[in-house]
């Protein structure tokens, strides 16, 4: 570090914030695609899509910003993760593109509507699975040599990453169903209330499996959690509490709290993951500081971002505010 001060923690915060923003926001709209095949009828599908139509593309711009931001601030993450997940990245991007195009054209289609419904659903599921596999690969670690990925083409596709991929599908579906509880009413909402406990059960199962598997696989993680009792135990406790809150809110038929509680599950799990692995960002070898770009490069971009991010957040908040309230059947946001 030859610059005056260390920007790495600030940048880790920004990228970390961007990732969880992306996961929470694109999560519930990818969730609609995951739930699509199980929806009761076409009218419900229209309403589900309408409930996310005003916001989904804004949600996805966080992903592009994340990609470019990583290249700028932590280039090593960008240049190891992307080659290591080469085929997974293709699945992710192809899935997102199909889904985006389907989104636009389904609203404008009549006879070809079912085709766009399928694209929307398959694209969402593939993209979600790939995102889960990215998380799994991060936990697994990467085979590197001299700052370069040297592993194989399918290192990212192991039983463990398949589990995290499926877990992500369950998790996004849960975000999606609690979003529907918040945003819809009548039979669609009742359906969402019915499927949410099942989705939560799946999320809990994967949560427990990963929590047992990870320390068995990675001695560093094990040492961090079990060598001495530390405050990081508050994080899984927070996740469990969120689950309890979710169940109670479902029993009481509350509308807003289930979604908030689900976001809580995600945030605490995410922080727990960070607590397990950081400062290793390209495990097992490289830390945030190894992966960081030059101080002057981080500073150069930071100036622009500090100006733009508040603006984007305000705009995002405003969009959600404008589209607050229930989505009714037949109300078109197309």
């Amino acid at each position: 570090m030859d610059s005056m001060f260390d920007l790495v923690p600030i940048w880790a915060g920004i990228i970390g914030f961007g990732i969880i923003m992306y996961v929470l926001m694109d999560g519930f709209d990818l969730g609609q695609g995951i739930l699509f095949p199980f929806a009761r009828n076409e009218e419900d599908r229209d309403t589900m899509m309408n409930s996310v139509a005003p916001v989904w593309d804004g949600n996805e711009t966080w992903l592009v910003l994340g990609g470019a931001g990583l290249l700028a601030a932590f280039p090593l993450v960008y240049t190891v993760f992307l080659p290591a997940l080469y085929l997974g990245v293709f699945v992710l991007l192809a899935g997102l593109i199909f889904r985006g195009v389907a989104f636009e054209f389904r609203f404008k289609a009549r006879t070809s509507k079912y085709l766009w419904s399928w694209s929307f659903s398959v694209g969402s599921i593939l993209a979600t699975f790939a995102q889960g596999a990215v998380v799994g690969s991060y936990i697994q670690g990467f085979e590197t040599e001299n700052f370069r990925y040297v592993g194989g083409a399918f290192d990212w596709l192991t039983p463990f990453t398949v589990l995290t991929g499926l877990g992500m599908i369950a998790g996004y579906a849960l975000l999606g169903s609690t979003w529907l509880i918040l945003k819809t009413e009548g039979k669609l909402q009742a359906w969402a209330y019915r499927i949410t406990p099942k989705l939560l059960a799946m999320v809990v199962a994967v949560f427990i499996a990963i929590s047992i598997w990870t320390p068995l696989m990675d001695p560093m993680v094990k040492a961090r959690w079990f060598d001495q009792f530390s405050l990081i135990w508050l994080l899984p406790v927070g996740a469990l509490l969120s689950m309890v809150v979710l169940v109670r809110a479902l029993i009481k038929r509350q509308e807003g709290l289930p979604f908030v509680a689900t976001m809580g599950i995600f945030v605490f799990t995410y922080l727990g993951l960070a607590a397990s692995k950081l400062p290793y960002i390209v495990p097992p070898s490289y830390t945030l500081w190894d992966a960081a770009s030059a101080g002057e490069s981080q500073l150069f971009l930071l100036i622009g971002l500090l100006f733009v991010i508040p603006f984007v957040l305000m705009y995002t908040a405003w969009t959600y505010w404008v589209f607050r309230g229930k989505v009714k059947a037949g109300m078109g946001y197309h």
């Binding site: 470019a68 960008y78 240049t79």
Partner: peptide
């Protein structure tokens, strides 16, 4: 936004200090 990393990671790694911020600004 992703192709520089998937197919041209050595190029991205070497030039990131300049190209990273510039592409991000875009």
């Amino acid at each position: 936004a992703f192709q520089f990393g998937t197919n041209w990671s050595n190029f991205s790694y070497t030039s990131a200090n300049f190209l990273g911020p510039i592409l991000s600004y875009e």
